[in-house]
Design a binder for these strands. Sequence first.
RNA 1: GGUUCAGUAGCUCAGCUGGAUAGAGCAACUGCCUUCUAAGCAGUAGGUCCCAGGUUCGAAUCCUGGCUGAAUCACCA
Length: 598
Amino acid sequence: MNIEKIIASKAITIFNEIYQQSLKYDVVQIIKTKKGFEGDYTIVLFPLLRYAKKAPVQVGKELGELLVQKDNFFSDYEIVGGYLNISINNAFWLNFVSEASKIQNYGLQLDNKEKKKIVIEFSAPNTNKPQHLGHIRNNLLGASLSRILKANGHDVVKVNLVNDRGIHICKSMLAWQKWGENATPQSVGKKGDHFVGDYYVLFNKKYNEEIEQLIESEGYTRKEAEKNSNLMLQAKKMLKKWERNNKKVRQIWQTMNDWVFEGFEKTYADLGIEFDKTYLESITYLSGKAIVLINMKKGRVQVADDDSIYINMEDKGLDKKILLRSDGTSVYMTQDLGTAVTRYEDYKFDEHIYVVGNEQDYHFNVLKIVLDKFGYEWSKDLQHFSYGMVELPDGKMKSREGKVVDADDLIAEMYKTAKQKTDELGKLDGFSEEEKNEIIRKISIAALKYFILRVDPKKNMTFNPAESIDFNGNTGPFIQYTYARINSILNKAKEQSIKIDNTILENIELQTIEKELIKSVFKYEKIITEAGTKHSPALLANYVYNLSKDYNRFYHDLPILKETDKNSKNFRLVLSQLVGNVIKSALNLLGIEVPERM
RNA sequence: GGUUCAGUAGCUCAGCUGGAUAGAGCAACUGCCUUCUAAGCAGUAGGUCCCAGGUUCGAAUCCUGGCUGAAUCACCA
């Protein structure tokens, strides 16, 4: 229900009557009444003045008077400056609480008439190193957006694309072969992805040493040294062998990738991330090449002097783009062409969302253009959900320099801090070790997820480790705590065998704080829609934080179980239950679980 | 150099489809636990909303120009 529209249309009907005009309702601007003023919604009078040809106060008075008089939807009005603040009848708010509390999944819009089939790709890790903070943002945004789109009634397919082939994996493989002495993750007691990642780092270390040494002893320039690096040549050779299906190379590749997948599985489980389908680039990478060759026959791509194949996009204001290297091998773009076409054949999607960092804005722009030039009319349905980088307080993360925040380390660190904090506060005394651990796990993951999701996705964000483990204020645990409090009240009500009746009497008097809280709940539907269309979990995160703040104020200022008036007590219990459900639902859309106690 | 995005309190962020006195949290200071969970609530202090013009009754929000930062610009993924 769009209440602003309803108010606007009521107001315009009256306005036209008074001033003999025939304005459309969208001339009227309805905004929420600012805090500190009496009223629920505000009609901005300025735009109406030229039609009424009267002073603002006059117009406001005439309009307000008739609105309240003719329509019992409104209960009162007040004019401040050029603003007409109107109050909506309490019965409306009470009725809303009553109705919303009866709906199973209040807020979710599951019967969308414009239901779309949406494929969403996220995560897309490389198998040469463990995931870091950047991946976490990607995973969380992708998972949350999927849930939000589902809540908007769409049919969502979550896919992962694992980049499991290429020169970077060969580097790890080569390093392991040379210096690994047949060690395995089990033999050294290390998580598989970290184990393999260590060899990637080792390769780069030895490679850099070699470069320095070549520059010194042979007098090469850096470029020449890089070209002549023995290690790099061996890695390239290994890649060629891989492509030719060399048995030995394939075997090492398979073994090492399996280790990495095992590690990833654990990280995904910790983060609560799941996929409907996982694509492997080692399987799909060839299909792009075929597409390029077909389009060469159709004259849509050009061949350069050195036999490389490129496409000309000068008509789109862009440059040329290489699609096949001079040696005939695929580039990144070629692979994405292939996967896009495969995806479309697999799902016939109405929309395809790529959750990928904004460093690749240009790439996805080009991808769409190339597919369009190749005649795929669905290229217009590809969307790049572009999010900003995660930076550390002292600058950017650099994986080659080892200056990264590792995902697993971070999760472990958060858990440790949450445990320490919980013990300090003595919050979970009397719980079994198992129950305790489970609650602490939920809290620590919530802190991490909320910290990342509350920031507007398209913006770069700074990750301050010290702040991320804070559990007070604008944090995930604060919201969870609100839920736990509500749950505790409801449990006590149950113990006292109080029956909560959500058929609410319409003559309960509402306190300002109660009304604020109801209005906050009322916004939920709108926020879900907005988060869906704008692709922004941050909207939901900020919403549920504000809702929690409103509830805590209510909880602090007004008695609930101790309220003596039976009707008020019942109403406050119904409202509490409703808020609890909305908090749980909203957090769920962010992929955050709620503890029943904390 | 071109393109895209960003610049709001000491710090991290909201607000941006134009509306009233620009909001939170953290950090600092002050109150409130014999009353439903103090991981809470209330308060004090902290602002040339990067700068300069323009549009408008009205601009943090829209437009233009500048400054600063980030990303990116045909054979790395």
